[in-house]
């Protein structure tokens, strides 16, 4: 029989909770649920340390625990391969779409954050460090 584990919001980052206040690079404050693709792009443009990149979801596999998934991304023009293991409710920001997770129902339950289903082929916002001079 399936065993459902109780939600453990304390173990999750607090800033995905609906209503959380996010400060953009220009100082503007927005709620997490109101963020747009342009907010990430513009913040990265004026950041001295970070630049924005696109990460395409290539695979989504089961993780080591029942609530975890391993997501393989292809990052940037060089298609660098990056794998991250996250909880199924962990939201990623998809270009032109907004917040998406592997289990949007659980994300909405835990964070009250509206989410789409994260799928192979989705292009997520990611960051790289600017080259140090």
């Amino acid at each position: 029989p399936a065993v459902s584990s109780p939600p453990s919001p304390v173990a999750l980052p607090p800033f995905f909770m609906r209503g959380s206040i996010i400060q953009l690079a220009d100082g503007e404050l927005k709620r997490v649920e109101d963020l747009k693709t342009e907010d990430f792009i513009q913040s990265a443009e004026i950041s001295s340390e970070l630049k924005i990149d696109s990460s395409t979801v290539e695979r989504i596999d089961s993780g080591q625990s029942p609530n975890a998934v391993v997501i393989q991304f292809s990052v940037g023009e060089l298609k660098a391969q990056v794998c991250v293991e996250v909880l199924v409710e962990y939201p990623f920001f998809v270009f032109g779409q907004g917040w998406s997770s592997c289990c949007p129902d659980r994300t909405t339950q835990l964070f009250e954050l509206s989410c789409a289903k994260l799928c192979v082929g989705d292009v997520c916002v990611s960051l790289t460090l600017r080259s140090l001079r």
Binding site: D39, F40, S43, D53, F73, V75, G76, E77, L127
Partner: peptide
């Protein structure tokens, strides 16, 4: 008097879960 509770403010980049490998310009 009750001090208003300060609302936490999170930086925008904390929402992006990983830093991809640095690429040369």
């Amino acid at each position: 008097n009750v001090e208003p509770r300060s609302v936490p403010v999170f930086p925008w980049h904390s929402l992006v879960p990983f830093l991809a490998p640095t690429q040369s310009d």
